[in-house]
Design a binder for these strands. Sequence first.
DNA 1: GAGTGGTCTAGACCACTCG
DNA 2: GAGTGGTCTAGACCACTCG
Lengths: 245, 245
Amino acid sequence: MLTTFRQLDDSDATPKYMQVERMLREALATDALRPQDALPAERDLAEELGVSRITIRKAIGTLVDEGLLHRRHGAGTFVTGSAQRIEKSSSKISSFSEDMAARGLRSHSEWISRSSGSVTPEESINMGLSPGAPVFRFNRIRYADELPMALEYSTIDANCLRSLDAVESSLYKALAETGNRPTRALQRLRAIAFDEGRAELLKMPLGSPGLLIERRGFLKNGRLVELTTSYYRGDAYDFVAELSD
Amino acid sequence: MLTTFRQLDDSDATPKYMQVERMLREALATDALRPQDALPAERDLAEELGVSRITIRKAIGTLVDEGLLHRRHGAGTFVTGSAQRIEKSSSKISSFSEDMAARGLRSHSEWISRSSGSVTPEESINMGLSPGAPVFRFNRIRYADELPMALEYSTIDANCLRSLDAVESSLYKALAETGNRPTRALQRLRAIAFDEGRAELLKMPLGSPGLLIERRGFLKNGRLVELTTSYYRGDAYDFVAELSD
DNA sequence: GAGTGGTCTAGACCACTCG
DNA sequence: GAGTGGTCTAGACCACTCG
């Protein structure tokens, strides 16, 4: 197997290891590298691309972590076959708008309130922010195809958004614009009965079942940017999760 | 914050970065490093332990990947607070017994029924089994610390278990004995209101909220072995999911 | 400006695999 | 024995954070 890679772009500000990583991903995507194929040796790749071996190792390491490649000590680095690939939790992080779009529904929101303030002591602990740190709060009713689907109460680290008005329809879009879209999230789900206030907002009977979802959204560096509590109609929404060992 | 670490053991054949990693884990476990604490700078740690900075970075990198630490460019490396920590285990496939054990609860079951039969037409489609294929059905009330927690209705491909009696308390244990423990599962969650029959079995008021969980468990080769529908008490059970992009 | 993590180099030696 | 990945060093320069 002989693959030739083009040279790195010196004018590109992207770190070299990411450029190498992208190059390898493309080779995998275009089948220039096929399952079971051996990659060129790290030293050879390093020489060919004019970077150090450590840079090559860092790029390969990411793909190994993702299960796309695997290394065998003394033997080489190989492309993982699709059959042997371990699918990482395919539970993708997505916003309400994206979630509804994936279900083929059109979404819009109605604002309950939108305000700036500072963290409560409880939030301060939960979000790892200093006491008094500025936050934005976004409270709205979320609709899917004209049906009131959920109530959503979000608290966002104010440093992660340009302004209070930056959020039009999609919070995640606004966070992405400043490079602060969460890449990981922890969600806690529980079944609850709607109290009078929430039942009314969602036009549901008092006491009917709903799904309470608490979400904590984190940046790549581990910092918490989002703390959202949502109440979904039990009759119209279900949540899918993939588990693996 | 001042933490002193003992020197590395030169006679230890374990790679240095793993020794450093273990050292940091111990500091975290014994609260020598507490949430929000800053670690010593990488250069300082390297000097203190007599290793290169790259070795320190590799050790820290592992813990960052696990979410135990997080780095802030230009600021330092910090201990992640437990509230902001993402539990890896959350997307792990586990049985009811294991799930309860992880929450520090003791579990047992009460059988509603246990029978062998053949697939219904609906199951046949869902499980990819030929019409009339043999299955076992296990229906039980699941208790956590004497509290009725859930109703569980499982249908299992009969070829995957030694016998109907092979299942004592843990279904997954019995499946593991024949090498047929699912490695992947797809779960669907929804909020429901308990009907009279289920409310009575769980000693809950009629109409109180519950979590309906439908689980499909797959072997590594993609074959479906388990089809389980569970009803969890809404007031006592929550489900945690980890999402990523 | 001082300190921090992020990237990168050009080497080195080791343990392992393969024919 | 030749080739491979695994570990490790002692530097270097950069971008970022903080007071």
